[in-house]
């Protein structure tokens, strides 16, 4: 009897184990599936368009009669909006992190952190309309030549959106710096400002870098804000005042349009998707590397 009971328990354990493994397997399989589809469609695309043309042509006009397949305008569009976003988000996010960590009263810190995280909870479509209807008109007062669709406005708004990502993760990294370093700095007569920026920020640099890379990844992949406010016009430019298009918005544009499935035009979105994937993959790899170094340091 006991033996039988034991066997039953073993079978139950096995079932539970398989179920858990299945859950893990689903995510792996999904990722693999996406990768395979991306790869197959990209290969089919690159049979008709050479890789050299794809990376060197300066025009992206797959939907027009005169077809050009140069990804560069989409890449610069993506880089430009992300760059503007990070220029806004890094100083503000880091200042917030330092303030909360070193200056703010603990009670204030506990109230303000959730409030900041609300910024991350606002739907991006709301941000998009905010960029188009509030920020762009306001900026046009400063730059009268600015087009109604442009990279600057969605870039700035995207920057505001990713502030909590940077401030929250950086604050965690600063908080994790051993208290003894803070004491050493104060003991030598440093002010709070000096302690923050000469000791704590460098000591937490790996964590801060990770937060910035995650924020950049988020900006690369952001779709809605740029789709609404940037103009969907592939433009090889670093001028933030004219309309541009990012990789993500191009994909949306084609997916929602009336392009026939299986056509070359349709396959462009997989090639574009592959490009985006390569970018985020590189960023993820860097993150993993930095994290590894980070954990070694305090072991």
């Amino acid at each position: 009897m006991t033996l039988f009971y034991f066997e039953g328990l073993k079978i139950k354990e096995k079932i539970i184990e398989s179920l858990l493994a299945l859950c893990g397997g689903i995510t792996v399989l999904t990722t693999l599936g996406i990768l395979i589809v991306l790869l197959i469609e990209s290969v089919l695309f690159f049979r008709e368009v050479s890789v050299v043309e794809f990376v060197t042509d300066t025009q992206w006009t797959p939907l027009f009669a005169d077809k050009h397949f140069g990804i560069l305008p989409l890449v610069t569009g993506t880089l430009l909006t992300s760059l503007i976003a990070i220029i806004v988000a890094l100083p503000i996010g880091l200042s917030i992190a330092v303030y909360l960590n070193e200056y703010a009263h603990p009670k204030f810190r506990l109230t303000i952190k959730p409030v900041l995280e609300i910024l991350a909870a606002i739907p991006t479509v709301v941000y998009g309309f905010f960029a188009l209807t509030v920020v762009t008109p306001a900026l046009q007062n400063i730059f009268p030549s600015m087009s109604g669709f442009n990279a600057l406005s969605p870039g700035l708004v995207m920057g505001i959106m990713i502030i909590p990502l940077i401030s929250s993760l950086s604050e965690d990294a600063l908080y994790a710096v051993p208290k003894s370093l803070r004491e050493a700095s104060y003991g030598l007569g440093s002010s709070r400002f000096q302690t923050s920026f000469k000791v704590l920020v460098p000591a937490a640099s790996s964590g801060i870098i990770v937060s910035v890379i995650l924020a950049i990844s988020r900006a690369f992949g952001e779709t809605m804000i740029v789709a609404i406010a940037a103009g969907q016009e592939p433009n090889l430019t670093f001028n933030p005042l004219v309309p541009i298009e990012t990789i993500t918005t191009y994909i949306v544009q084609v997916s929602m349009g009336d392009v026939a499935q299986g056509s070359l035009e349709f396959r462009t979105i997989f090639a574009a998707g592959m490009t985006l994937f390569i970018f985020t993959f590189i960023l993820n790899t860097i993150t993993a590397r930095v994290k590894k170094r980070y954990y070694h340091k305090y072991e």
């Binding site: 004491e183 700095s185 007569g189 460098p202």
Partner: peptide, 25 residues
């Protein structure tokens, strides 16, 4: 000046550690 219980050098070079108190001034 103060020396603490556990050694707490900054994660910087030996040189930068020693001159830290001067550079902040």
């Amino acid at each position: 000046g103060m020396v603490f219980q556990k050694p707490n050098p900054f994660p910087k070079s030996i040189y930068d550690n020693v001159v830290y108190g001067l550079t902040i001034r």
